[in-house]
Simulated scan of single mutants.
Amino acid sequence: MSATPGPRILVFAGSTRRGSHNTHLARLAAERLERHGARVTRIDLKDYPLPLYDGDLEAAEGLPPQARRLQALLAEHQGLLIASPEYNGFPTPLLKNTLDWMTRPDGERSGLALFADKVAAVVSASPGALGGMRSLGLTRQLLGNLGVMVLPNPLALPRAAQAFGEDGDLEEAAVRQRLDSLCHRLVSTLSRLHPIDDASGESP
Protein backbone atom coordinates (compact mmCIF):
# COMPACT_ATOMS: atom_id res chain seq x y z
CA MET A 1 0.00 0.00 0.00
CA SER A 2 1.36 3.41 -0.99
CA ALA A 3 2.18 6.05 1.62
CA THR A 4 0.58 8.63 -0.65
CA PRO A 5 -2.93 9.59 0.54
CA GLY A 6 -5.46 7.60 -1.41
CA PRO A 7 -8.79 8.56 -2.95
CA ARG A 8 -11.78 9.40 -0.77
CA ILE A 9 -14.58 6.83 -0.94
CA LEU A 10 -18.04 7.12 0.62
CA VAL A 11 -19.48 3.78 1.74
CA PHE A 12 -23.04 2.99 2.77
CA ALA A 13 -25.77 0.37 2.55
CA GLY A 14 -29.27 0.86 1.22
CA SER A 15 -30.68 -0.57 4.44
CA THR A 16 -31.12 0.67 7.99
CA ARG A 17 -32.32 -2.68 9.37
CA ARG A 18 -30.66 -3.80 12.57
CA GLY A 19 -28.42 -6.75 11.71
CA SER A 20 -28.58 -6.00 7.99
CA HIS A 21 -26.38 -8.32 5.92
CA ASN A 22 -25.70 -5.45 3.53
CA THR A 23 -24.57 -3.15 6.33
CA HIS A 24 -22.21 -5.93 7.40
CA LEU A 25 -20.95 -6.35 3.85
CA ALA A 26 -20.43 -2.58 3.53
CA ARG A 27 -18.31 -2.64 6.69
CA LEU A 28 -16.14 -5.44 5.32
CA ALA A 29 -15.75 -3.56 2.04
CA ALA A 30 -14.75 -0.39 3.88
CA GLU A 31 -12.03 -2.28 5.73
CA ARG A 32 -10.64 -3.65 2.48
CA LEU A 33 -10.76 -0.25 0.78
CA GLU A 34 -8.70 1.18 3.62
CA ARG A 35 -6.17 -1.65 3.32
CA HIS A 36 -5.73 -0.69 -0.33
CA GLY A 37 -5.04 2.92 0.63
CA ALA A 38 -8.42 4.64 0.34
CA ARG A 39 -9.64 7.26 2.79
CA VAL A 40 -13.05 5.88 3.67
CA THR A 41 -16.12 7.52 5.17
CA ARG A 42 -18.73 4.92 6.14
CA ILE A 43 -22.18 6.21 6.99
CA ASP A 44 -25.51 4.77 8.07
CA LEU A 45 -28.53 6.18 6.23
CA LYS A 46 -30.42 5.89 9.51
CA ASP A 47 -28.51 9.03 10.52
CA TYR A 48 -29.86 10.88 7.45
CA PRO A 49 -33.65 10.42 7.60
CA LEU A 50 -35.47 11.89 4.62
CA PRO A 51 -39.15 12.17 3.72
CA LEU A 52 -40.44 10.43 0.62
CA TYR A 53 -39.53 12.68 -2.28
CA ASP A 54 -42.37 15.12 -2.98
CA GLY A 55 -42.04 17.99 -5.44
CA ASP A 56 -44.60 20.06 -3.56
CA LEU A 57 -42.70 19.58 -0.30
CA GLU A 58 -39.47 20.59 -2.03
CA ALA A 59 -41.10 23.71 -3.51
CA ALA A 60 -42.54 24.72 -0.15
CA GLU A 61 -39.61 23.94 2.14
CA GLY A 62 -36.57 23.51 -0.07
CA LEU A 63 -34.02 20.77 0.26
CA PRO A 64 -34.15 18.91 3.61
CA PRO A 65 -31.10 19.51 5.83
CA GLN A 66 -30.16 15.84 5.72
CA ALA A 67 -30.08 15.93 1.93
CA ARG A 68 -27.73 18.91 2.12
CA ARG A 69 -25.50 16.96 4.50
CA LEU A 70 -25.38 14.04 2.09
CA GLN A 71 -24.62 16.31 -0.84
CA ALA A 72 -21.77 17.91 1.11
CA LEU A 73 -20.37 14.45 1.87
CA LEU A 74 -20.63 13.39 -1.75
CA ALA A 75 -18.79 16.53 -2.86
CA GLU A 76 -15.83 15.57 -0.64
CA HIS A 77 -15.41 12.09 -2.14
CA GLN A 78 -14.30 10.80 -5.53
CA GLY A 79 -15.84 7.34 -5.20
CA LEU A 80 -18.77 5.39 -3.83
CA LEU A 81 -19.27 1.85 -2.64
CA ILE A 82 -22.91 0.94 -2.11
CA ALA A 83 -24.28 -2.29 -0.64
CA SER A 84 -27.72 -2.62 -2.18
CA PRO A 85 -30.27 -5.05 -0.74
CA GLU A 86 -32.91 -6.55 -2.98
CA TYR A 87 -36.63 -6.05 -2.32
CA ASN A 88 -38.78 -8.04 -4.76
CA GLY A 89 -36.03 -7.89 -7.36
CA PHE A 90 -35.44 -4.14 -7.02
CA PRO A 91 -33.16 -1.83 -5.01
CA THR A 92 -34.68 -0.62 -1.75
CA PRO A 93 -37.01 2.40 -1.68
CA LEU A 94 -34.60 3.85 0.90
CA LEU A 95 -31.70 3.83 -1.56
CA LYS A 96 -33.75 5.22 -4.45
CA ASN A 97 -35.30 7.96 -2.29
CA THR A 98 -31.91 8.96 -0.87
CA LEU A 99 -30.38 9.29 -4.33
CA ASP A 100 -33.44 11.17 -5.59
CA TRP A 101 -33.05 13.81 -2.88
CA MET A 102 -29.29 14.02 -3.37
CA THR A 103 -29.73 14.89 -7.05
CA ARG A 104 -32.02 17.85 -6.36
CA PRO A 105 -30.64 21.40 -6.84
CA ASP A 106 -29.83 23.54 -3.83
CA GLY A 107 -29.89 27.16 -4.87
CA GLU A 108 -27.45 27.56 -7.75
CA ARG A 109 -25.75 24.23 -7.02
CA SER A 110 -26.90 21.25 -9.07
CA GLY A 111 -27.20 18.10 -7.03
CA LEU A 112 -26.98 15.98 -10.16
CA ALA A 113 -23.64 17.57 -11.06
CA LEU A 114 -22.19 16.22 -7.81
CA PHE A 115 -22.43 12.70 -9.22
CA ALA A 116 -20.56 13.51 -12.44
CA ASP A 117 -17.16 11.81 -12.76
CA LYS A 118 -17.65 9.72 -9.62
CA VAL A 119 -16.67 6.06 -9.75
CA ALA A 120 -18.68 3.44 -7.87
CA ALA A 121 -18.64 -0.22 -6.97
CA VAL A 122 -21.81 -2.01 -5.93
CA VAL A 123 -22.29 -5.13 -3.86
CA SER A 124 -25.33 -6.96 -2.55
CA ALA A 125 -26.12 -9.63 0.04
CA SER A 126 -29.34 -11.63 0.06
CA PRO A 127 -30.68 -14.69 1.85
CA GLY A 128 -31.73 -16.02 -1.57
CA ALA A 129 -29.76 -18.03 -4.09
CA LEU A 130 -29.05 -15.11 -6.46
CA GLY A 131 -27.46 -12.84 -3.86
CA GLY A 132 -29.37 -9.75 -4.97
CA MET A 133 -28.08 -9.93 -8.54
CA ARG A 134 -31.36 -8.61 -10.00
CA SER A 135 -31.23 -5.44 -7.92
CA LEU A 136 -27.53 -4.94 -8.65
CA GLY A 137 -28.22 -4.50 -12.34
CA LEU A 138 -30.83 -1.85 -11.59
CA THR A 139 -28.60 -0.11 -9.07
CA ARG A 140 -25.83 0.06 -11.67
CA GLN A 141 -28.31 1.44 -14.21
CA LEU A 142 -29.56 4.06 -11.74
CA LEU A 143 -26.06 5.25 -10.88
CA GLY A 144 -25.12 5.29 -14.55
CA ASN A 145 -28.11 7.51 -15.27
CA LEU A 146 -26.73 9.94 -12.68
CA GLY A 147 -23.39 10.15 -14.50
CA VAL A 148 -21.48 7.73 -12.27
CA MET A 149 -19.02 5.28 -13.80
CA VAL A 150 -19.86 1.92 -12.21
CA LEU A 151 -17.25 -0.84 -12.20
CA PRO A 152 -18.21 -4.13 -13.87
CA ASN A 153 -18.41 -7.46 -12.09
CA PRO A 154 -20.24 -6.45 -8.91
CA LEU A 155 -20.33 -8.83 -5.96
CA ALA A 156 -23.60 -10.66 -5.26
CA LEU A 157 -23.51 -12.62 -2.01
CA PRO A 158 -26.12 -15.41 -1.88
CA ARG A 159 -27.37 -17.20 1.25
CA ALA A 160 -26.12 -14.30 3.32
CA ALA A 161 -27.40 -15.72 6.60
CA GLN A 162 -24.72 -18.41 6.33
CA ALA A 163 -22.08 -16.37 4.48
CA PHE A 164 -20.32 -14.78 7.45
CA GLY A 165 -18.05 -16.66 9.83
CA GLU A 166 -17.76 -16.35 13.59
CA ASP A 167 -15.01 -13.75 13.14
CA GLY A 168 -17.40 -11.58 11.11
CA ASP A 169 -15.53 -12.03 7.85
CA LEU A 170 -16.83 -13.84 4.80
CA GLU A 171 -16.76 -17.59 5.23
CA GLU A 172 -15.55 -18.61 1.76
CA ALA A 173 -12.05 -17.69 0.63
CA ALA A 174 -13.17 -17.27 -2.99
CA VAL A 175 -15.81 -14.73 -1.97
CA ARG A 176 -13.29 -12.86 0.20
CA GLN A 177 -11.01 -12.68 -2.82
CA ARG A 178 -13.78 -11.34 -5.06
CA LEU A 179 -14.63 -8.58 -2.58
CA ASP A 180 -10.96 -7.73 -2.18
CA SER A 181 -10.49 -7.61 -5.95
CA LEU A 182 -13.47 -5.29 -6.41
CA CYS A 183 -12.23 -2.95 -3.69
CA HIS A 184 -8.74 -2.93 -5.17
CA ARG A 185 -10.13 -2.09 -8.62
CA LEU A 186 -12.13 0.79 -7.20
CA VAL A 187 -9.13 2.27 -5.40
CA SER A 188 -6.76 1.79 -8.34
CA THR A 189 -9.24 3.23 -10.84
CA LEU A 190 -9.80 6.31 -8.70
CA SER A 191 -6.08 6.72 -8.11
CA ARG A 192 -5.50 6.85 -11.86
CA LEU A 193 -8.39 9.23 -12.51
CA HIS A 194 -7.75 11.47 -9.50
CA PRO A 195 -4.01 11.48 -8.76
CA ILE A 196 -3.16 12.94 -5.36
CA ASP A 197 -0.80 15.89 -5.02
CA ASP A 198 1.91 14.70 -2.61
CA ALA A 199 2.30 18.12 -1.02
CA SER A 200 -1.34 18.89 -0.36
CA GLY A 201 -2.75 15.38 -0.08
CA GLU A 202 -5.61 16.41 -2.36
CA SER A 203 -6.55 15.81 -5.97
CA PRO A 204 -5.27 18.61 -8.26
Rank of each mutant, 00 (worst) to 15 (best):
D54C: 09
D180G: 15
A67T: 08
L170I: 09
D106W: 03
G144N: 06
R159E: 10
P7H: 01
A129C: 03
D44H: 14
G89K: 06
A129N: 09
L94H: 10
P7I: 07
D47F: 09
A173V: 03
A113F: 12
A60M: 03
L130E: 09
P7R: 08
R69N: 09
R39Q: 06
L112G: 02
S124P: 06
A120K: 04
E171G: 06
A156C: 08
R32K: 15
R27H: 13
S124H: 04
L63S: 00
L193Y: 05
G37C: 08
S203H: 12
L33F: 11
S84Y: 00
T4M: 11
G201K: 10
G89W: 10
L146P: 01
L130Y: 15
Y48R: 02
A30V: 13
K46T: 08
L130W: 04
G111Y: 03
A173W: 04
I196D: 05
V119I: 04
G79M: 06
S126H: 02
M102K: 01
A83L: 01
D44F: 09
R69A: 15
G111F: 11
Y87C: 02
G55A: 12
N153R: 12
G62N: 00
G89Q: 09
P127N: 13
L80Y: 03
E76R: 14
G37M: 14
A156S: 14
G62F: 11
L179A: 13
P7S: 07
R18K: 12
L138I: 04
S20T: 11
V150N: 13
D117Q: 15
R192L: 00
I9L: 08
E58T: 08
S200G: 05
N88L: 06
A75I: 08
A29L: 11
P5D: 04
E171L: 15
T103E: 07
I196S: 12
L151F: 12
Q141S: 13
Q71P: 02
L114H: 12
A13E: 14
D106L: 11
F12W: 09
R35Y: 04
A163W: 10
L70K: 09
L33Y: 11
R185T: 05
A38Q: 00
V119F: 15
D198E: 15
G131S: 09
P93Q: 02
D44N: 11
A3F: 10
S188R: 14
G144M: 10
S84F: 01
G165E: 10
T23P: 06
H194M: 12
T23D: 13
L182R: 14
A125Q: 11
P49S: 09
Y53Q: 13
S191I: 00
G201M: 01
G37A: 11
L170V: 04
D198S: 07
V123M: 13
A67R: 10
H194G: 06
P49D: 09
L50E: 00
L10T: 00
A13R: 10
A29H: 12
S126V: 02
G6I: 01
N97I: 08
A13K: 15
L130H: 12
L10H: 06
Y48A: 03
A116I: 00
E61T: 06
H24V: 07
G14V: 03
G128S: 07
E61Y: 14
Q78H: 11
P91H: 14
